[in-house]
Structure formats: structure tokens, C-alpha cells
């Protein structure tokens, strides 16, 4: 009955033996036969076998990672020199984006013009990725059982009282001054996305962090009363539909659409680059609401 490791390996190769079915506890073969209808092949792992398989896994892990890092480091030798203008990554696409981007999209910030005009559908997809993630987290976190089948309460994900910043005087006083500034900075980054570094994603993340700080310091109940589930749903859905409608005009007007209407961006003037600003604001709202709802779901299990 006792097999060596290599015999087991060859049996596994033929399909007669299953490593994963092994458990660390003794199992009654009769029960397994009743449930699976198969002759029982499950044996309890001995302590030695367990230690051996664990050690083997660790050794193989280290070897594999070292080999992978070695191969990747070896590949550095055949890379082109770093920061060289002759590199293959610097091609006519980049020239086109930088030289014609301001005329065609109106954005002074080439990255904003690229992601919100040339590749606007890509950014719409990103916003929907965030939306889908919020939906998935909602489904997973909303129906969590807080009690075991026999009625005893399970330990909470974050036990109340362990992380309670609302009782901390220093954090509370500092945050009272800090939150308005974070909000203003977030709005600045959001509204200047087409003129300076920043844009919808970074501005939205800053606004979301302000909301998270607010709900940490002033308590989740107060935050949930202001930013209700209904409000967040409305903001996200209106932003996503506005983005989708604003960018779908090219389906109707063809590829060469509305060039003359989009005004050119002027550094220092917020209302200057046509559609880029409203699209940035829409993306920013989606990101902000996503960050805030992630926090609330993990902290509270619900938004309300």
C-alpha cells in the first residue's frame, strides 16, 4: 500500500491518483463512497508528507522566482538605451498626438486630449470597469451574514471601536481644517485637467479621499446621511450616461466630426477646450463615488 513519491507521481500522471483529494484528517471511506460513488482513494496526509510537500513547494517557488528575475534581468541587456529619442516607442503616433493634438482636441494637456478624445471609448470602458467593480463589491458585501446559522454573532470585519478616529481630538481638529482644502484641491485638479497635470481620475481620487476622511472623522452615520445610496447611484449613472451620449455623436456624424465647434484650449482659461472639461468632470464623479463606496462597503457592509 505504501508508495514512494515517484510511484504516486506516475499514478497521478495516468489519472489514478489525485493529490488534491488528500486531507490532513482521517476520513471514513464509507461516507466518501456514499457521496461520490467512487471507490475511496483518499488517505490522510502524514505529518512527514505534509512537511515534505510544503518544503518542496517553497523550494520550487524560490527557484522559479529567481529564474524568472534572472531571465528578465538578462533581457535588459538587449533593450534599447533608456531615454533615447531614437527608441522604437517614439514613433509617428506620438508626433501626431503632440503636434496636432491641440488643434484637433483642444486640450493643452496632451495626455488628457489623448485619453478623452482620440481614445475616448477606452476611457468610457475604464469608467465602466469601475462601475462593474462597485456592482461586484455591492453584491459580495451586501448579503454578508452577520450571524452564524445557530444565531451567534460573527466577528465583524472591522470591529467597532478599534479604529475610531472621531474620538481622537488631534485627528478631529486637524481634519476639520484639512477637509475643505482637500476638496478645493480636488476640484482644482478636476477642472484644470485639460490645461495642467491632473484630470478626471486623479481629481476624482482626491475628492474621494476627502469623502473617506470625512466619514472617518465625523462618523459613518453622518456621512451616510449626506451621501446617501440614492445620491451616489444618481451621480454615477448620470455621469456615465452623459459620457456615453457625449461621445457617441461620432456614430452619427462619421469619423471627421465637429472639428470647428471644439474650441482650442488656452492656458489659464478653464472654459476653453470644448468637451474635455465636462468629460473630465464626469469621469471624476465616477471615480470619487467609486472610492467612497468601496470604503463604505468594506467599513460598514453597506452605504446607507
Amino acid at each position: 500500500m505504501k508508495k514512494t513519491f515517484w510511484q504516486k507521481l506516475s499514478a497521478w500522471h495516468k489519472g489514478d491518483y489525485d493529490f488534491t483529494l488528500k486531507t490532513t484528517d482521517h476520513v471514513d471511506p464509507q461516507i466518501i463512497h456514499e457521496y461520490t460513488g467512487k471507490e475511496h482513494t483518499i488517505q490522510a496526509l502524514s505529518r512527514k508528507e505534509r512537511a515534505f510537500s510544503g518544503a518542496l513547494y517553497n523550494v520550487l517557488c524560490v527557484l522559479f522566482c529567481l529564474i524568472l528575475i534572472g531571465v528578465l534581468l538578462g533581457a535588459v541587456v538587449s533593450l534599447p538605451p533608456h531615454g533615447n529619442a531614437e527608441n522604437p516607442a517614439v514613433n509617428e503616433v506620438m508626433d501626431r498626438y503632440v503636434e496636432e493634438g491641440m488643434q484637433e482636441t483642444g486640450a493643452v494637456n496632451t495626455v488628457a486630449g489623448m485619453i478623452l478624445d482620440y481614445r475616448a471609448f477606452d476611457t468610457l470602458g475604464e469608467s465602466f470597469v469601475l462601475f462593474t467593480a462597485v456592482c461586484a463589491v455591492t453584491i459580495l458585501m451586501k448579503n454578508t451574514k452577520r450571524t452564524a446559522p445557530d444565531g451567534t454573532p460573527l466577528p465583524m470585519v472591522v470591529a467597532p471601536g478599534i479604529v475610531d478616529y472621531s474620538k481622537d481630538n488631534i485627528v478631529k481638529t486637524v481634519s476639520r481644517f484639512l477637509i475643505p482644502f482637500i476638496f478645493v484641491f480636488g476640484v482644482y485638479v478636476l477642472l484644470n485637467g485639460h490645461l495642467s497635470p491632473g484630470g478626471g481620475f486623479s481629481g476624482g481620487a482626491i475628492l474621494g479621499s476627502a469623502l473617506i476622511l470625512f466619514s472617518m472623522v465625523y462618523g459613518e452615520d453622518r456621512a451616510a446621511a449626506i451621501f446617501s445610496e440614492r445620491l451616489i447611484k444618481t451621480v454615477v449613472l448620470v455621469s456615465l450616461s452623459f459620457y456615453a451620449i457625449a461621445k457617441s455623436y461620432s456614430f452619427f456624424t462619421g469619423a471627421n466630426h465637429l472639428h470647428s465647434i471644439i474650441s482650442q484650449g488656452i492656458p489659464g482659461r478653464i472654459l476653453s477646450a470644448g468637451l474635455i472639461l465636462p468629460l473630465n468632470v464626469a469621469v471624476g464623479f465616477v471615480v470619487c463615488c467609486t472610492m467612497y463606496s468601496f470604503y463604505m462597503y468594506f467599513r460598514r457592509g453597506r452605504i446607507q
Partner: peptide, 23 residues
């Protein structure tokens, strides 16, 4: 790219040789 600026059009210079790759 060495010695070039962030891809934000400044001072009206639109020459691609002045900016890094935005992609």
C-alpha cells in the same frame, strides 16, 4: 526621453521634439 518636458503644450511650442511620449 532625456532632456524633454512633460507633454503639456507650453508657450505655444507644438514641435514634437520638445515633449516626451504621452502614450
Amino acid at each position: 526621453i532625456d532632456g524633454r518636458h512633460a507633454p503639456i503644450i507650453a508657450n505655444g511650442i507644438t514641435d514634437a521634439a520638445n515633449y516626451i511620449n504621452p502614450i
